[in-house]
Design a protein around this nucleic acid. Structure first.
Lengths: 196, 196
DNA sequence: ACCGAGCCCTAACGTTGTTAGGGTGGCGGT
DNA sequence: ACCGCCACCCTAACAACGTTAGGGCTCGGT
């Protein structure tokens, strides 16, 4: 049995190493280099070994995307240090597009069609929850009753996603995308603050 | 020489037929079925013929994306029938996400990484111009001086893109995305209308 | 000491984008 | 009217991809 746990530990370890290798390849050489054989070579195994840990490439990619969402979550949570809620909003917007700009390939995978709707939903839930909390705190602080917090949250999330995407796929450039995201969020909040 | 023009006409014709076949396959069977061999079969040729008309697959895909942007342009321009500017704005938002919902695979290709930044910029320019015109007309109608129309335009374009994407890649559903896009645009405009 | 079970590799299959090379048919010049 | 050339089009192939099959090796338990 003791050997059994060791084996299990080793299994989990190589699984982890595969994920790390995938992230390394993805970030440094882009999605076109993200190949089963390439990853296997990086962890010093032959290609079929990967299939002992992941059903197929999409399952592995999903894991990479989930890792990406965890990274993003950490960055977004770090904005909690800012006590002023409005400033924190601006910081969150900036942080979101900064993440997309600093990890373009990972970001691409996170939003790519390789991971399906439900899995992405699950992976992004925690990060979205941060935004939702912040949004309810904001509405409380400004005595604004948002008709539907979840709707507002989706709107902001979609807006950030859209502008950040413009930043990394169009020629807009990420610094401009950062400013635009901030302005968009500021304008949205201002719009919500004024009474109907 | 007369035969020369006929040949040229035939060349252009098969090129066009290839594009049409590509669109047909893309819309009906999705991006995974969009294969050189598949398209060639559809136009009753062998695969290498495609390379007499397009340098590589990406060049063909770019053409499909450009066609998609022309279709979208036509739909967006149709909103000009609405005389009320605010209503037209709402209609444009709805039309945008409707397009994404009705042509998900085409929309995916239009915004996918297969077409590079500059080419997309060029293909989307006309459609964006419609939005920009509408936005300046709106600002004039409401006596609002937008700090930078182009910035506002990019913000709206990015927002629509983001929310529409949420509609077709997440489980949000397109009808919800439509409502959200309208609400987002309405809120943005309200935010711009209130004086600083 | 043997035997079984897990680990890991080589080899292969089917499919993709893409290129090379040959055959064929019609057009222009003599 | 014939001949040569050119453009068109096909078959065959290559490299790389995801993925699967099958066999050998090693290690632990009886």
């Amino acid at each position: 049995m003791s050997t059994g746990t060791r084996r299990a530990r080793e299994r989990a370890s190589t699984r982890e190493r595969i994920i790390e290798a995938g992230l390394r390849v993805l970030e440094s050489e882009g999605i076109s280099a993200l190949t089963i054989r390439r990853i296997a070579t990086d962890v010093e195994y032959a290609a079929p070994i990967v299939y002992q840990h992941f059903a197929n490439k999409d399952a592995l990619v999903l894991e990479l995307a989930a890792h990406g969402y965890r990274m993003m979550l950490a960055e977004l949570e770090q904005t909690a240090q800012e006590p002023d809620i409005d400033r924190r909003m601006m910081q969150l917007a900036l942080e979101y597009v900064r993440f997309a700009g600093e990890h373009p390939h990972l970001y691409q995978v996170m939003n790519g069609p390789a991971v399906d709707a439900e899995d992405r939903r699950r992976a992004a839930a925690a990060a979205i929850a941060v935004l939702e909390e912040l949004l309810t705190a904001w509405s409380a602080a400004h005595d604004v009753v948002l008709a539907d917090v979840e709707e507002a949250c989706d709107i902001v999330w979609g807006t950030l996603y859209g502008i950040a995407s413009l930043g990394y796929l169009d020629t807009i450039g990420n610094e401009r995308a950062g400013r635009l995201a901030q302005q968009a969020l500021r304008t949205l909040l201002r719009g919500w603050r004024t009474d109907l």
